[in-house]
Design a protein around this nucleic acid. Structure first.
Length: 279
DNA sequence: ACAACCTCCTGGGGGC
DNA sequence: TGCCCCCAGGAGGTTG
């Protein structure tokens, strides 16, 4: 999501929305009333990310919220005016393009989402804190409020698995399945380990692993399995750096480990880990 | 509190 | 080739 936000920024920040269109009444949820009309004519002041949401702050005091779900994708089409300005993106299947935004400056942004698990909303800025999407979210994993003492405190007494705990957006906001699985491998922690029974020393290692995985993934442009692409259509690069995700049966890459990557389903999500070096 | 399962939806890939 | 089943970066819900 951070790579998407960074990709969208040059086409949106400081730009005026000349035209907004929706091609259907809903995604996962119905669009709010008069959604497209209320975007039209607005300027985007800032573009931020909170958890897996992209927040566009508009010049009328409202916030346009986008969640990509599993397969949502923003593409920027338009004339390249200056280096790093706009890009050409190969449009995905146009049947699944549900929202089109055109800016005064000539960029065309298309939101495409085959599975329609994504959603958008448009709310007053003052309601952001209390909005159901954001109420109860944990700290940003790359922010200052996320550190080993926080992890220790929030996980204390939890009997649930560390994997389930890290996927819980109330514990830490914005970690998805891939990054949880990769961070646990780097930290040498078994995904099934009870969250409340991990030593401070190991939580510190986990904290550093989470940050490292996210920073590397952002640096690499995100992770592409099948659908994810940057706003210019480029694939991510972090999938080439997975150490366990989607590597069932392969040799563990940990030095001198010699283990074999296993896969299991926990809570409906695929988990990959090395039983030898993750304890 | 927590695990296990289901739901939304479409498409890609593997097995036969 | 075609079918059928399984799987998928999320997350909210129900049940037990």
């Amino acid at each position: 999501m951070e790579t998407v936000r960074r990709g969208l920024a040059p086409a949106l920040v400081g730009r005026m929305i000349k035209r907004a269109r929706t091609k259907r009444p809903d995604l996962r949820f119905p669009f709010p009333p008069r959604f497209a009309a209320r975007l039209t004519g607005r300027r985007v002041d800032t573009l931020e990310r909170r958890a897996k949401y992209i927040l566009a702050h508009l010049d009328d005091g409202h916030v346009w919220i986008t969640h990509l779900g599993m397969t949502g994708r923003w593409s920027i089409l338009g004339q390249k005016q200056q280096p790093g300005d706009f890009y050409y993106a190969e449009p995905p299947n146009p049947a699944h393009t549900h929202v089109i935004i055109e800016t005064e400056e000539g960029a065309r942004l298309e939101f495409n989402d085959p599975r329609r698990f994504g959603y958008m909303d448009l709310i007053p800025e003052a309601e952001l804190e209390t909005h159901a999407f954001f109420k109860g979210l944990g700290p940003e994993p790359l922010g200052n409020e996320f550190h080993e003492p926080y992890l220790k405190r929030v996980l204390a007494g939890k009997k649930t698995s560390i994997k389930a705990a890290l996927l819980d957006q109330r514990v830490v906001a914005g970690l998805g399945n891939i990054y949880v699985v990769e961070a646990l491998h780097r930290a040498g922690i078994a995904p099934t380990l009870a969250a409340g029974r991990i030593s401070a020393r190991r939580l510190d290692k986990l904290y550093h692993a989470i940050r490292a995985v996210l920073e590397e993934a952002i640096e690499a442009g995100g992770s592409t399995l099948s659908d994810y692409a940057a706003v210019d259509g480029a694939q991510g690069g972090f999938q080439h750096r997975f150490r366990v995700y989607d590597r069932e049966g392969e040799a563990c890459s940990t030095k001198d480990c010699g283990g074999t990557i296993k896969r299991a389903v926990h809570g409906g999500r695929s988990t990959f880990w090395c039983p030898r070096c993750q304890r």
